[in-house]
């Protein structure tokens, strides 16, 4: 295995990680501030991708589509918070699970009702297709480099937002003591709606960006939702830093596992069997990673609630 291939795979892992971070940051904020388990977070990912595909198709501009996708997901998030989630803050976690499970069904089938059963078309704009040649004569798609860039920008923006702004101060206050900020006269319900919409918007952005590389179809948010949960649990719930590191860890481990486990098993197994066993183990790898981390650090790597 050459070094250039390893570097390329590391880049792939980082790229997967940055997109997971967009999903996970919203999820972890919502949990950290409101204590809410939101299974429907993957639905905002899907809403973002569908809105982007629809708007891009009608306007011809990917950037307009992207803005529309993010806005649609944020609006959907705000509406869901106002209509449903708001009533659940004082209810047990289990009621939240049931309600957000119901929301998944409503979003998925509602989307299918509106857009039909066929996957939608969404491609990166022509100025982002193609590849660059990396050192070692490896070709790497420009679009994936852009995704990494967007992920880094969002991570920095979130850091600034949370550590430097008034809204960020309230979010931090909300994470450390929910009753306290109410007593301090902060309009909690507005704060909650804003945080929820922000998380949904980030999920929508991830869905739109990744949707251009993948299939825009009903149910696309569910696999990534499970991965995002793995990320925030590994990172420590409520911690943006944990979400970032967890996302990168999951992205890199998952990518490298898929490549190198089959090769590893080939050392002492016939090739086709090794591929099968390697692929099976690679599929389980991040869950094994998560179980090991939680077995030793039951609150994740960087818990905000210690």
């Amino acid at each position: 295995m050459s070094v250039t291939l390893l570097i390329e795979q590391l880049l792939n892992g980082v790229q997967l990680g940055t997109m997971l971070f967009l999903m996970a940051s919203g999820l972890t904020l919502v949990f950290g501030v409101m204590g809410l388990i939101n299974l429907a977070h993957g639905s905002f990912y899907m809403v973002g991708a569908y809105a982007t595909a629809a708007v891009t198709a009608s306007t011809g501009s990917f950037l307009t589509g992207l803005a529309a996708g993010m806005a649609a997901a944020a609006v959907a998030g705000a509406l869901v918070e106002l209509i449903v989630i708001r009533r659940l803050y004082h209810r047990p976690h289990l009621d939240q699970v049931l309600a957000t499970f119901a929301l998944i069904l409503i979003f998925s089938e509602g989307t299918r009702w509106i857009f039909g059963s066929s996957p939608l078309r969404l491609s990166p704009p022509s100025w982002l297709t193609g590849f660059v040649t990396l050192p070692g004569n490896t070709r790497y798609p420009i679009y994936r480099l852009v995704l990494i860039g967007v992920g880094i920008v969002i991570a920095i923006a979130l850091y600034v937002l949370i550590s430097r702004t008034r809204l960020g101060m309230r979010i931090r206050a909300g994470e450390s003591d929910r009753e306290m900020i109410g007593a301090l006269g902060v309009n909690i319900s507005k704060l909650y709606t804003v945080v929820f919409a922000l998380g949904a918007g980030l999920a929508g952005l991830a869905g739109a960006l990744v949707g251009a590389l993948q299939s825009v179809q009903v149910g696309m948010g569910e696999p990534v939702l499970i991965l995002a949960f793995v990320v925030i649990v590994i990172g420590g719930i409520g911690s943006i830093k944990g979400a970032l590191l967890g996302a990168l860890l999951v992205g890199v481990v998952d990518t490298l596992g898929r490549v190198y486990l089959p090769i590893f098993f080939r050392a002492f197994m016939p090739p086709s069997e090794a591929s099968g066993v390697g692929a099976a183990l690679a599929a389980m790898l991040i869950y094994i990673l998560m179980a090991i981390i939680l077995a030793f650090k039951p609150k994740g790597l960087f818990s905000a609630h210690d």
Binding site: F31, I37, H93, I226, F229, V230, V233, I237, M284, Y287, I288, M290, A291, L294, A295, P298, K299, G300
Partner: peptide, 20 residues
């Protein structure tokens, strides 16, 4: 293993084992 954790961590670690 799982009962060493609580709350959402417990929810997710039980999910992780089932996914494996």
């Amino acid at each position: 293993i799982s009962l060493r954790t609580t709350g959402v961590y417990f929810i997710m670690i039980t999910l992780a084992f089932a996914q494996m």
